[in-house]
């Protein structure tokens, strides 16, 4: 019975995430448009775009290899598995034992490598440029993320995401400076990993300033739809991860019934909406930075995470 309930929660969670992904992107875009005084497209617009793209016949470059065709699927599958591991409305889902934070980072690397290889497949200048920059940024984002994971591992005693979320919710950890610093570091990593302002502009059409979009220039039809959907999924994943670790309040505990799930779902939707609003406000308020300032931005995140860990050592070593 417990297994069935965990399985049901898992399936519901995956469905929720698949539904939430286009909405998160759509709502953020809509909010940004409103903040800038425009009417903005409907929050459902990403869904419509993808449906349209799916129906179109993809055009591949003459020298495109099988990588161009396979990479969108591989990247999406890795993202889908990763997002299935991040708890949303309930804890103790069927895949929770798999949900290791290091594995999560690995799966996101799979998606990133797939995207970079697809960008280099045709041998165009923009694809190579985007791939090189994307992989280079990861060299700074990854250690910052791992140090945040170290903070959680010290506080919760494990790197299992579900257990970390449980510890954060009812471990009585209190408000800690380390956690605040780790949260800032993780936000910076999330911004960089999702190619949002100020690291990259998700809406740009100016080739020289883009990183993420530069790798998708040769994709069309279903491949483009898959890439777009994957990037929406990744944004949802990071927001859900931030919620699960830093704001786990209201989430239904493991083994609880559908009523708690509904409460958890409502709480999650509320938190997600607030986070989308915060993202939209932040993106409207800041400007995109030069590409070679990004290492400084992520390096600062890395140092903050290191500081968080060091402060944690101090407070654990006090006795």
């Amino acid at each position: 019975m417990a297994l069935l309930s965990a399985l049901a929660a898992q399936l519901l969670h995956i469905t929720l995430m698949l539904l939430a992904a286009p909405l998160v992107v759509g709502v953020t875009r809509w909010l940004k448009a409103r903040l800038m005084g425009r009417r903005g497209a409907s929050p459902l617009q990403p869904l419509r775009d993808w449906a349209k793209l799916l129906r179109k016949r993809p055009v591949l470059a003459e020298n495109a290899s099988v990588i161009s065709e396979a990479a969108p699927y591989a990247g999406f599958a890795a993202c889908l598995l990763a997002i299935a591991l991040v708890p949303s409305f309930a804890q103790g889902m069927a895949l929770a034992p798999l949900g290791d934070l290091v594995l999560l980072a690995g799966l996101l690397t799979v998606a990133r490598v797939a995207l970079a290889l697809a960008g280099m497949d045709v041998g165009t200048a923009f694809g190579g440029l985007g791939a090189a920059r994307e992989m280079s940024f990861a060299a700074f984002a990854e250690p910052a993320l791992l140090l945040c994971v170290l903070t959680f591992a010290i506080l919760a005693g494990t790197t299992n995401l579900d257990a970390v979320a449980v510890a954060m919710r009812d471990g009585g950890l209190g408000l800690r400076v380390s956690l605040a610093l780790a949260a800032v570091a993780m936000l910076a990593v999330a911004v960089a990993e999702n190619a949002r302002i100020p690291v990259d502009n998700p809406a740009t059409h100016l080739e020289l300033t883009m990183v993420h979009e530069a790798m998708l220039l040769e994709s069309s039809g279903r491949h483009l739809a898959l890439w777009e959907a994957q990037s929406a999924l990744r944004l949802t994943l990071w927001l859900a991860l931030l919620l699960a670790v830093f704001l786990p309040f209201g989430t239904a505990p493991a083994g609880s019934g559908p009523l708690a799930w509904v409460a958890g779902l409502l709480a999650w939707l509320l938190k997600m909406g607030a986070l989308c609003l915060a993202l939209a406000v932040f993106e409207s308020a800041v400007a995109k930075m030069r590409v070679f300032r990004v290492p400084e931005f992520l390096g600062a995140a890395l140092l903050l995470a290191l500081l968080a860990v060091a402060l944690l050592f101090v407070s654990t070593g006090l006795a």
Binding site: L60, A125, L217
Partner: peptide
């Protein structure tokens, strides 16, 4: 799928 020349902006 259809094959075409490289777009490359």
């Amino acid at each position: 799928t259809q094959r075409g020349p490289v777009w490359n902006c």
